[in-house]
Computed example of a mutant assay.
Amino acid sequence: MNQKDLINQIGQIRSLMEKSSKFMSISGLSGVLIGSYALIGAAVAYIMLYGFNSQFGYRDHYVNRESIPALLFIAFAVLIVSIGTGYYMAQQKAKKAGQSIWNPTSKALFQAMAIPLLTGGVLALILLYQQNVGMIASTLLIFYGLSLSAASSFSFRELRWLGVLDIVLGLLALCFPGYGIYFWAAGFGVLHIIYGLIVHQRYEK
């Protein structure tokens, strides 16, 4: 065995070890669907708040008390459908590969995501209670981005870039609260779709 063959074998072994230590059952197409759900939810919320005939632009007023229950319903509906879609498609992908969706790597991934997600969720509820509604979109984007960045160590490297971009959008939304719904749609919708398409193209074809 010459040196070139040895280097190739070492590279293959290293690649196998990296794959075995990462949760690869996340479906790229589920990212596309989840992003689509977020865009639909944002569109419904926008129409409910501002109507069909309103023009896109900066909003110097946010959410009134009467609209909060409906907005929470939309948010939770999108969240539940997204979680259900992601879980089902990951389960199908793992089953096709002859793997279990619940293993030490997936546990580590969810544990890495849990603290930023729970912190962001609690902070959003506090802001909602204090009627600081203009900061909720930025808060959720930032903490969601932090959770994705933490989880990327256990999954696709593209997840880190999705997390970083969501953090950037969250910080911009904090600077321009009147555009919160647009940053929300871009972060949870458009970026998810792009991420899903990239993962599907690179790893699932």
Rank of each mutant, 00 (worst) to 15 (best):
A185V: 06
I7Y: 09
L165R: 01
A77C: 12
F183N: 07
A42C: 14
I26R: 02
K107Y: 12
S25M: 03
P104G: 07
G170T: 13
F154M: 04
Y88T: 14
G98C: 10
K19A: 08
I194K: 13
A114I: 06
L146I: 11
D5K: 14
Y144L: 11
G180S: 03
I181K: 04
V122W: 11
I167T: 09
T139M: 05
L146H: 04
A108T: 01
S138D: 01
L117H: 03
V133W: 11
G145P: 02
N103K: 05
S36G: 11
F188C: 07
F56Y: 14
K19Y: 01
Q111C: 05
L123M: 13
N8G: 06
W102N: 14
A173F: 04
W102I: 14
I194T: 14
I136K: 00
I40A: 06
L71K: 02
I181T: 07
L16V: 08
I193T: 09
G163Q: 04
S15G: 03
L140S: 00
G35I: 10
P104S: 10
F76S: 11
L169P: 05
E204S: 01
Y46S: 08
K96H: 13
F183D: 01
S152R: 04
N8S: 15
F183Q: 02
L169W: 09
L118H: 13
Y46I: 07
G180K: 09
T119Y: 13
I7L: 14
P69C: 06
Y37T: 10
Y62R: 05
S149Q: 13
W102L: 14
L123Y: 06
W184D: 03
Q201H: 12
L162F: 14
A42Y: 00
L39G: 00
L140E: 00
Q201C: 07
H200T: 14
I34H: 03
G196Q: 06
N53A: 15
N64D: 15
A45E: 02
T119K: 07
I167S: 07
A150W: 01
H61R: 12
A45N: 03
S20D: 11
I115Q: 15
S106L: 05
F143N: 08
G163C: 00
Q12N: 14
G41Q: 05
P69A: 08
G189V: 08
S149Y: 09
P69I: 03
A77F: 15
S36R: 04
R59T: 11
L118K: 08
A38M: 03
E204V: 08
N8R: 15
A186F: 02
F176H: 09
G120Y: 01
F52D: 05
S106D: 02
L197T: 08
G189P: 05
A70K: 09
F188E: 04
I181M: 12
L123R: 01
M24Y: 03
A94H: 06
L174Y: 15
Y144K: 01
Q111S: 13
A94C: 07
W161N: 11
S147N: 12
L16D: 12
A185M: 02
S152W: 07
L49D: 06
Y62I: 03
R157M: 15
L39W: 00
V78P: 00
P69R: 09
P116L: 13
G51V: 12
F143A: 07
S27K: 03
I194V: 15
G31E: 00
V199Y: 04
K4V: 07
S153T: 11
S30K: 05
I193A: 06
G28Q: 04
L71H: 06
V81L: 15
L159S: 02
V63A: 02
G196L: 04
S149W: 08
